[in-house]
Simulated assay, not measured.
Amino acid sequence: MLKNLNNSYVATAVNGGEINVKLIPLQRKQSSLNGFIMVDVGQMVELESGEIFPLNIDGKSFYTGINQLYRL
């Protein structure tokens, strides 16, 4: 379930636990005629504690540890 709370989202675990997260851009360097530029290639999840985790391929879920799956 995706709930937006002022650029903050609530991620729900399978066991019913909820955490507040923020989506941040995943950037990579790309060369151009004028040198290197940063390009957005996806998104990552930032927890309230400051930890950053990559989103899974589906773009709606992420793992915070072994068997700890959260969905946006």
Rank of each mutant, 00 (worst) to 15 (best):
N20M: 10
Y70I: 07
G42N: 06
I57S: 14
K60V: 08
S31A: 10
F62R: 00
G17L: 11
D58R: 08
Y70A: 01
L5G: 07
N34P: 01
L47D: 00
N34F: 12
E48Y: 06
N6D: 15
A11I: 05
K60P: 00
E51S: 10
L26V: 13
N7C: 04
V41F: 03
G35K: 03
M44C: 07
L55V: 00
E46G: 02
G16C: 08
F62A: 03
V39R: 01
L72N: 02
V39Y: 04
N15A: 15
L2R: 13
G59A: 09
Y9L: 13
L55A: 04
K60E: 15
N7V: 03
S31Q: 15
K22F: 08
Q30K: 12
Y63M: 12
G35P: 06
Q30P: 01
M1V: 14
I24M: 05
A13I: 02
Q27H: 03
V41N: 03
N67Y: 11
L69E: 05
I52M: 07
E51T: 06
K60M: 10
L33E: 11
K29S: 13
S8E: 15
K60I: 04
I57Q: 12
L33Y: 06
E48S: 15
L69Y: 08
Q43N: 15
P25K: 07
Q43H: 13
L69D: 02
V21L: 05
G17K: 13
Q30C: 08
K29Y: 08
L55I: 06
T12L: 09
N7I: 13
G65K: 08
F53K: 03
V45P: 01
G42R: 06
N6G: 14
I37Y: 07
R28L: 11
K3P: 03
R28G: 09
R28F: 08
R71C: 10
M1Y: 13
I52G: 06
Y63N: 14
L26E: 14
N15T: 12
I37R: 11
L55N: 02
L33S: 14
N67Q: 10
G65H: 05
I37L: 09
G59P: 01
A13L: 05
V14M: 09
G59K: 04
N4H: 11
Y63T: 05
A13N: 10
I19E: 07
G42I: 01
G50M: 05
R71N: 11
A11D: 04
G16V: 08
N15F: 07
G42F: 03
S8T: 14
V45S: 01
I19L: 09
